[in-house]
Design a protein around this nucleic acid. Sequence first.
DNA 1: GTAATCCTTCCAATCATGGGAAGGTCAAGC
DNA 2: GCTTGACCTTCCCATGATTGGAAGGATTAC
Lengths: 148, 148
Amino acid sequence: MNIGQAAAASGVSSKMIRYYESIGLIPKTVRTESGYRVYSDHDVHTLRFVRRARDLGFSVEQIADLVSLWQDRERASKDVKAIALEHVGLLERKIRELQEMASTLKHLADHCCGDSRPHCPILEELASHDPLPVHAKADARFGALGKA
Amino acid sequence: MNIGQAAAASGVSSKMIRYYESIGLIPKTVRTESGYRVYSDHDVHTLRFVRRARDLGFSVEQIADLVSLWQDRERASKDVKAIALEHVGLLERKIRELQEMASTLKHLADHCCGDSRPHCPILEELASHDPLPVHAKADARFGALGKA
DNA sequence: GTAATCCTTCCAATCATGGGAAGGTCAAGC
DNA sequence: GCTTGACCTTCCCATGATTGGAAGGATTAC
C-alpha cells in the first residue's frame, strides 16, 4: 500500500504520516526500490490509533506514550489511565476558561443594543480600567482556537 | 514612558507590544533620539484595551476591528455586537468539542481499573476499528491546548 | 568610569498542519 | 514505446500568538 492509500484508510493525511515518521511517532516504513513508502494493514492500524488519539485531543507527545504502552504487553493500565486523566484535567481547565470568556462576553453582548447608535457596553468594558468582571481572564493563551 | 514601563502598566509584554506594532495592530510610537519607543498614558490605555480583548479570547484580527470601532465615534454598536457574538459562537463550538472529548475520555477512564495489569479499555478503544463512541470527534484540530 | 539594567533589531522555536515547488515513478491508453 | 496524468519523493514556507535569546547600543545608578 502506498502512502496515499494508507492515508485514505487511516484518516491521517499523507503529509501527517510523513511528519509522524519524521518525528519518530511511527517507525520508518519499508520502501520500494524507487523510494516509495509501503504500508501494511498493521501500519494502518497504528495510524488509525494515532488518529483516534488526536481526535480526543491528545498531544503528539502523549500519543507517543500511548502507542508505546499499547505495544507493550506488560504495561500497567494505571499508566494509561494516568495519561488519560491528566489530559481530562487539561481539557476541563480549558473548558472552564472558555466558558468564562463566553459568559462574560454574552453578558456584555446582552447589554448592547446592537443598533446603529455608537453607545456600546462591550467597548466600554474593554476600555475600562477596572478588572474584568468576575471571572473572564485567560491564564494561558491558546494558540488559535481552531479553524471552526 | 519606555516600553518596559508601558508593558508593566498595561499587562502586555514588551515583546508583544513590539509585535503588535509590527503587524499594525497599534500605531508606531514616537521614538527618542536614540531610538527608544515612547508611550503616553493614552497608548497604555489602548494597550490595556488590547489585553482585555485578548483575555476574552479575541483574535488579533478581531481586536484590530474592535480597536478601530472603539476609536470611531460614529460606529454602530451592532458592528461591535456582531464581532462579539461571532466570537461567542466560536467559543461555544470549541467548548462543545472539548466537552465531547472530555466526556468520552472520562467514560473510558472510568472503565479502566488503573492497576498494574495490562488490560485497558482506553487502549482497546483507541485500537478499535469502530467509530469513536457517540460524539468525541474533533472536526478541527487545535494548535496546542495552551500551557496549562 | 563602570556595572547593571534597560533598550534596539533580528532570528529561532513552539505545535500540528497545510501548501506548494521541483523532480522522479508508475499505470493506463494509444 | 511514448505520452499523460496521477502518484510519489524531499525541501521549504506559512499559520497564530508568544517566548527566548543573541549582539549591540543607551541610560542610569553608584
